[in-house]
Nucleic acid binder design. Structure first.
Length: 884
DNA sequence: GTAATCACG
DNA sequence: ACGTACGTGATTACT
């Protein structure tokens, strides 16, 4: 039989510092608890114990069993974000039926010591789980210590048995106490022998085993005379330290391992986990059995009466009902073969309608066309995707007044996921039946219409419930206008862009792919020759071995798994060996081949166009992102990469028109900070980076060299990202000191920028969030963190988000404006792409000039800043040409 | 599934 | 003293 005893404080601590912060919507931090539970699960799987319990420290202010006034005085107080998690973890453990041990004035160690000895007395094995090396003294033949460490979110454990301990330390585990008695431990306030450190202490214990033996033999021991003197003088302290370092093994505890036998979780666990938003852990702890199904929730059982539409007359009735309703909430199956509509009809009543068109006998096209026309106000989840589906089927896509996914994104842009099920748990602490139909793959693979139907109606009802919850919150936070004038109208614009797609010259692309292959093959042979053997060049591990071990090149930065082989590092090694250049070029070629040549060809639709999906709820700043394929990272920085842009072409007779904002982020920095010098630089209309260089380096405008401009440009970008001198130096290849001088000069030149940076961070600390000019918000719990790195990250984000985010807002407004004007003035022109500060339109050749003018006008006119906002537009027969 | 790398703004 | 720029997505290797 085996018992696993966990040091609760130690594991919680490690989880807290090892995992990035996570909190529920109402501000309760949960990452330490989450980390604790995943560690618990892992260790339980690994050890398969028959019993589990957890021990906690509990310090009474007035009583300490180790009567030392300053005991633990040097320990830092627990950060508030961790302290708040302790009682909740205890609640969780109680709910899981895992016994815990704690009492005033006792430490977790003392319980672990006592528990392990009682286990042994009962003939049980014991596994002590802790991150604290103090506990190693408890190791015996029947008790092992599992040392846990959490680094970068990764938990690793090391089993310490008498053998492995002796192998590592060279003495028996029990003499860990003697070691501490000599060397002391500042975090536990154990003095040890003054002047004796880890090295001397280890050496002595390895030779003599215990302090008793050492003091018996004094002064005739093998040690330096100075050490002998310190030991003699420090005997009293050593004896006292021994006592302090000894873990109690006979605490007053009536302990029986049987009582801790593993039990099933109790009835409260499920709701508690829902409250903490631990959906994944609900599965892993298997908490769902016996839980009430969602359908029993009050909101839904009162509201819905489900009926299916089977006649044209019925359809007419429903349309009438929907037209007169304040709004309806609906969801559609991904192939549009079914729609679920929830319609509140006053008081506590509602009509829930499920339309499945393979069964429906009447003219359902008419029903759909009416449903999605402008005179029925609709709420849905992921409106852009639904609009794309509707437009694809030549149906109208009007009258959408709310999108629950978009609203939830505006309320918390860093939540990461906005699927209906998760939102519902987060807002109502209840689970939705798994919305099978929302996952097109699951639906297609299973062909399980029955399962989809079973959850369909409750999901439409959930959309309505979320609308009621989210809409007032948007208003409270002043984000209604952002929602109504930017996010929601953009859905239609993006749906049309996705549908339009971009034409790609497939033949040219596959020819280019062939060329890349041939050149990569040549390089591969060359690399094998230079390396004196074959290996996988694409494996950073194998490449590192070849470069740094076999060829003995000097290594630079390290990664978690070995030496870095990234382009930055290799760049510095170019002169060391010709293999480096070959590898760099090989990387470039294979990247172009696999991601762009092959990748785009794979994504090509039969009509020769690629259709990306624009994601509206992914970035923390408000930008869009592009997936499957990503068309926002098509190469442009190298000549070879630019070849790919030549493959993006219009239909015959058309051209591509490309318009991009000029330095929109820096202009926004000038506007938001109000720095007069920076504003003047933009108002003068010259080359801003050169202008900056002239001011920062104190030379006349015409004396600015290429290198000075390059450096000034890097500083400008660095400022927007929340710079540090170190990274700036790295980036432009100067010393940290020199970089610091540039920054000082920069801030002296633009003092308003520095005061803005201070101001925005202060404000963010006070508010807990930052926002854009249009009230897009990003929460910043990182600023309150006790972790230096996280806090610094929070500060950089506080500087960057309002700028990057406002630029994103402005671009979205511009897209809406451009879309509207194109629709009325140049109906044959279509927006096809957005790349953050760049818009691309495809239109007939004859419309090119007017489209270019229109683009620039709308992009420039959409915001009124205290500096000019400028956009440049060109056109051409492919994307590269259109970049001007 | 995670890590490393590299493409973009 | 800390450890090192903001925001993304796709591919490949490897556990």
């Amino acid at each position: 039989m085996k018992l696993m005893a966990i040091d609760g404080n130690s594991i919680l601590n490690r989880a807290y510092y090892g995992i990035r912060p996570l909190s529920t919507r109402d501000g309760l931090y949960t990452h330490a608890i989450y980390g604790f539970l995943t560690t618990l699960l892992r260790l339980r799987d690994e050890e398969q114990p028959d019993a589990v319990c957890v021990a906690f420290d509990l310090h009474a202010p007035t009583f300490r069993h180790k009567a030392d006034e300053s005991y633990k005085a040097t320990r830092k107080p627990m950060p508030e974000e961790l302290r708040m998690q302790v009682p909740v973890l205890k609640e969780v453990l109680d709910a899981l039926n895992i016994p815990r041990y704690e009492a005033e004035g006792w430490e977790a160690d003392d319980w672990l010591g006592t528990i392990s000895r009682r286990c042994e007395a009962e003939g049980w094995d014991c596994v002590v789980v802790t991150g604290d090396k103090d506990s190693l003294q408890l190791i015996t033949e029947k008790t092992k210590v599992k040392l846990v460490s959490t680094r970068m979110g990764q938990t690793t454990t090391k089993d310490m048995t008498p053998e492995s301990f002796r192998e590592q330390y060279g003495f028996d585990p029990i003499h860990m106490i003697d070691l501490k008695a000599l060397m002391g431990d500042s975090s536990d306030n154990i003095p040890g022998v003054p002047g004796v450190g880890e090295k001397t202490a280890m050496d002595l214990i390895q030779k003599y085993g215990s302090i008793d033996t050492i003091y018996e033999k004094l002064p005739d021991i093998e040690a330096k005379p100075a050490a002998i003197k310190k030991l003699t003088e420090g005997e009293e302290s050593a004896r006292h330290s021994y006592w302090l370092a000894t873990i109690v093994t006979d605490a007053p505890l009536d302990f029986n391992p049987e009582v801790n036998a593993v039990k099933a979780p109790g009835p409260d666990a499920y709701s508690l986990f829902l409250k903490l938003e631990f959906s994944k852990l609900i599965e892993r702890f298997d908490l769902r059995q016996g839980a009430p199904a969602l359908a029993e929730s009050e909101r839904i059982s009162v509201a819905a009466s489900v009926e299916q539409v089977t006649s044209a007359a019925k359809a007419g009735e429903l349309l009438e009902l929907w037209r007169n309703a304040d709004h309806i909430s609906l969801l559609a199956l991904p192939d549009l073969s079914g729609v679920a509509v929830y319609c509140a009809t006053g008081g506590d009543t509602a009509v829930m309608s499920e339309l499945f068109f393979d069964r429906y006998q009447g003219n359902w096209n008419h029903l759909l066309a009416s449903l999605f026309s402008g005179d029925i106000k609709k709420v849905s989840h992921n409106v852009k995707d639904l609009m794309r589906l509707l437009l694809l089927n030549n149906l109208p896509a009007e009258g959408f007044i709310f999108d629950t996914a978009l609203a939830a994104y505006l309320l918390d842009a860093t939540a990461g996921s906005y699927d209906l099920g998760r939102l519902f748990v987060s807002y109502f602490n209840e689970e939705l039946p798994k919305p099978l139909y929302l996952d097109p793959d699951a639906f297609a693979l299973l062909g399980d219409r029955a399962a989809a139907e079973a959850s369909f109606d409750s999901c439409a009802t959930a959309v309505d419930a979320l609308y009621d919850a989210l809409a007032p919150k948007l208003r409270e936070r002043g984000q209604q206008e952002l929602f109504e004038t930017i996010e929601l109208p953009l859905c239609r614009c993006l749906a049309e862009m996705e549908l339009a797609g971009c034409r790609v010259d497939a033949k040219a692309l596959s020819d280019f792919g062939e060329l890349l292959s041939r050149r990569a093959k040549d390089l591969e042979a060359k690399i094998y020759h230079l390396a004196d053997g074959e290996f996988n060049i694409n494996s950073p591990k194998q490449l590192g071995e070849i470069l740094f071990d076999r060829l003995g090149l000097p290594h630079g930065k390290k990664t978690k798994t070995g030496w870095s082989t990234n382009a930055d590092v290799l760049e510095k090694l170019r002169w060391e060996s010709p293999i480096v250049d070959a590898v760099l070029e090989y990387r470039q070629l294979t990247k172009l081949k696999s991601t762009y040549a092959d990748g785009l060809l794979k994504a090509l639709d039969p009509d020769g166009r690629v259709r990306t999906s624009f994601q509206m709820t992914v970035t923390a700043t408000g930008r869009l992102s592009s997936t499957e394929p990503n068309l926002q990272n098509i190469p442009t920085r190298t000549d070879l990469g630019s070849e790919i842009r030549k493959m993006f072409v219009p239909e015959p007779g058309n051209v591509l028109v490309d318009a991009d904002y000029s330095q929109i982020e820096l202009r926004l920095l000038a506007h938001i900070s109000g720095d007069e010098g920076m504003r003047a630089a933009f108002l003068s209309g010259g080359d801003f980076h050169a202008e900056t260089a002239s001011k920062v380096f104190g030379v006349a405008r015409e004396d600015v060299t290429h290198e000075m401009r390059r450096r000034a440009k890097a500083v400008n970008f660095g400022i927007v990202y929340g710079i540090s001198a170190f990274s700036l130096g790295q980036d432009i290849g100067v010393s940290q000191k020199e970089a610091k001088a540039y920054m000082d000069a920069y801030f002296a030149t633009f003092p308003g920028v520095r005061s803005y940076m201070d101001r925005v961070v202060e404000q963010a600390k006070a508010d807990g969030y930052v926002e854009t000019l249009y009230h897009r918000r990003r929460d910043l719990p990182e600023l309150a963190s006790s972790n230096f790195n996280l806090r610094s990250f929070g500060q950089r984000v506080a500087l960057n988000m309002p700028i990057q985010g406002t630029a994103a807002d402005i671009m979205k407004l511009a897209m809406i404006a451009v879309w509207k004007r194109l629709k009325s003035e140049l109906p044959r022109a279509k927006l096809v792409l957005q790349v953050h500060d760049e818009l691309i339109v495809e239109c007939p050749e004859g419309d090119a000039r007017r489209a270019a003018v229109l683009l620039a006008e709308e992009m420039e006119g959409v915001a009124h800043l205290s500096v000019p906002l400028t956009a440049d537009a060109y056109w051409g027969k492919n994307w590269l040409e259109a970049k001007g």
